[in-house]
């Protein structure tokens, strides 16, 4: 197959790919440059194109103005708890939709897909009122709970679960394994790549979630990273050094997570999204 391209074709393809790489990575590089310079130097002309040595100082001032360590902890705790619980819920529901025949199954599943279309603005106010009446403002639970049953996660799990052979489940039943044991030991074990894909998708969603935490968290020591970063912009003098370091800190973990699991993630999404 490789030989079907002429040299000219290859040159064209690689130049487009190169442009794509520059556009994809360039802004990240520029962010990192910003994070390593003091804010004053950032406004030099011509702009600084190489990393500076002000990273530690920027972190110290970021820690002073935001309490960055606590905020990173908040983000990690919320995103990890959410990911574990929501992946399990998605897997259980996806398994039922893919491998069981029950009354109204297809109608229920269609409704689940419809809920993806509901703009979050519609449910924002009632959820806020609900959390106020539960006195849950500024709690981790308030951030985590409303999105736990994540329709797109269930959809992806269902698509991937279809590939489990019925005979495998049937054999376990004949051996006398209970339905929940089958789910936890056989289904989850064979579905590891799909679970990884859904988990990283859910982690990304929660780590990056902004509007809901912004509404529900108003004490700064409970902020998650996106909320804390947005509060920096509101300050009287925007310190781009701090800002870019904050952006770097919120970007780096998710990127590393993604790079480690990208193979499963991409194949999970590819496997899940095309069948219908």
């Amino acid at each position: 197959m490789r030989n079907q391209y002429s040299l000219l074709n290859k040159i064209v393809i690689y130049s487009f790919l190169l442009i794509g790489v520059i556009i994809s990575i360039g802004p990240f590089y520029w962010m990192f440059i910003g994070a390593t310079h003091p804010s004053g130097e950032i406004f030099n002309i011509p702009p600084q194109l190489l990393p500076g040595d002000y990273l530690v100082e920027n972190f110290i001032s970021l820690q002073e103005s935001l309490g960055m360590l606590k905020i990173i902890w908040n983000s990690l705790f919320i995103a990890l708890t959410f990911t574990v619980l929501s992946t399990l819920i998605s897997a259980a529901a996806g398994y039922a939709f893919a491998k069981f025949q029950f009354k109204g199954r297809d109608k229920i599943f269609f409704m689940l897909l419809l809920t993806i279309m509901i703009p979050y603005q519609v449910t924002l106010i009632p959820l806020f009122e609900l959390m106020v009446s539960l006195e849950w403002l500024n709690t981790y639970s308030a951030v985590i709970l409303p999105n736990l049953a994540f329709p797109f996660g269930i959809y992806l799990m269902r698509q991937n679960m279809k590939s489990i052979p019925d005979s495998l489940i049937e054999a376990a039943r004949i051996d006398g394994a209970g339905e929940f044991r089958i789910f936890f030991t056989i289904v989850l074990a064979t579905m590891r790549p799909a679970l990884a894909a859904v988990a990283i998708f859910l982690f990304m969603f929660q780590w990056n979630n902004f509007i809901w935490p912004l509404v529900i968290l108003n004490s700064s020591e409970m902020f998650t990273l996106p909320v804390a970063l947005s509060s920096l912009i509101g300050m009287a003098r925007v310190d781009y050094g701090q800002l870019m370091l904050g952006a770097t800190l919120s970007t780096l973990p998710i990127m590393i997570f993604f790079l480690i699991l990208q193979k499963q993630f991409i194949s999970g999404i590819l496997g899940g999204s095309v069948k219908e």
Binding site: F210, S230, M244, G246, T251
Partner: peptide
């Protein structure tokens, strides 16, 4: 993969 807020800042 990054958040809308980080994207906006960049």
């Amino acid at each position: 993969v990054i958040s809308g807020v980080a994207l906006a800042m960049i």
